[in-house]
């Protein structure tokens, strides 16, 4: 460690936040740019599976709620792009990387949303898993990232509750509606469990990120917490989690659970999930279709500035 690096680490150990213009190791900057931009992309791409159901929501109330939820996700993406920009990467660059298929986003969004119950399962499980990842990040070492996460976490609780509410309503409905909720849980359970990332034994960047406090708990710790929270909720709903090995372990004080199919996880990350191509194509088309709006707004701003300068 150089003296600068040592001083930097001491500052982090003392709980002092790093702000944009402070000195930081290049690797810290790079790791954070990767982490925050991937997170931002996940928020943006994450709008698509739910956007699929806005026009088909069963009631006007559900439609308004889903619309507000999806709008929040766009906001989350913008807070995070803003935080990443403070580290010296241009927003256009990040968006180009996403559209070119060079950037990663959470692989959970590469699964299709087949029924209305998927809106329930996503809010309850996917946003639920995201909250568990995000709450500790409110205390991470990088100021702008921590501030963005605080804002995001405040909004996520609404997301999870509205999802649970959809599931609750379906499970109290007709046998067909209950079956629909169970089917959604069957399809979303394992992708949600994988959202916390590879197991600790396999996770490459963990040790350094923990030391830098841009990660505060290991993937497996977060996953355990998620499963411990969701299992009793599923029981309350009268739904069965699709894992025959899931069982309360009184000695550990945690739920035991079955083996995770990491081959599937890596396969989806590699681009072979059911919707990878579809998601990127939709994003690209939306970006291109919006070009005239961006150009028009810029032309108007230019014209007005010239008129005002004259």
């Amino acid at each position: 460690m150089t003296p600068e690096e040592r001083e930097f680490q001491q500052k982090i150990d003392a709980g002092i936040k790093v702000e944009p213009k402070d000195w930081m190791p290049e690797a810290y900057r790079k790791t954070l740019i990767r982490q925050i931009s991937q997170h931002a992309h996940s928020e943006i791409v994450g709008q698509l599976p739910e956007g699929n159901w806005i026009t088909r929501a069963p009631t006007l109330k559900r439609k308004a709620i889903l619309l507000a939820k999806v709008q929040d996700e766009a906001g989350h993406g913008l807070y995070l792009y803003g935080a990443a920009e403070t580290l010296g990467i241009r927003r256009d660059q990040m968006i180009e990387d996403l559209l070119a298929g060079k950037a990663k986003y959470s692989s959970v969004f590469n699964y299709p949303t087949l029924t209305w119950a998927d809106m329930g399962a996503i809010g309850w499980l996917v946003d639920g898993a995201a909250i568990i990842n995000q709450i500790p990040l409110c205390r991470c070492s990088y100021g702008p990232y921590a501030r963005g996460m605080i804002r995001i976490c405040k909004e996520e609780n609404f997301h999870q509750r509205q999802g649970f509410d959809i599931m609750f309503t379906l499970t109290r409905g007709t046998p067909e509606q209950k079956a629909m909720a169970q089917d959604a849980l069957n399809r979303w359970w394992w992708p949600a469990v994988m959202m916390h990332g590879p197991s600790d034994a396999e996770s490459k960047h963990s040790a350094q990120s923990l030391q830098w406090k841009i990660k505060l708990f290991s993937n497996d710790e977060l996953r355990q917490k998620f499963i411990d929270q969701i299992a009793p909720q599923a029981e309350y709903l009268g739904l069965t989690i699709p894992d025959p090995e899931l069982k309360w372990n009184p000695e550990r004080g945690h739920y035991d659970f079955g083996a995770i199919d990491w081959d599937e996880f890596h396969n989806v990350i590699r681009g072979n999930g059911p919707c990878n191509r579809d998601r990127l194509r939709t994003r690209k088309e939306a970006h291109e279709a919006g070009a005239w709006v961006r150009e028009g707004a810029a032309a108007y701003a230019r014209k007005r500035a010239i008129r005002e300068a004259a």
């Binding site: 241009r90 256009d92 070009a291 961006r294 150009e295 810029a298 230019r302 010239i306």
Partner: peptide, 11 residues
Amino acid sequence: LEDRHATDWPL
């Protein structure tokens, strides 16, 4: 003002 790229909006 003219040569500002159309999509590179100021912050």
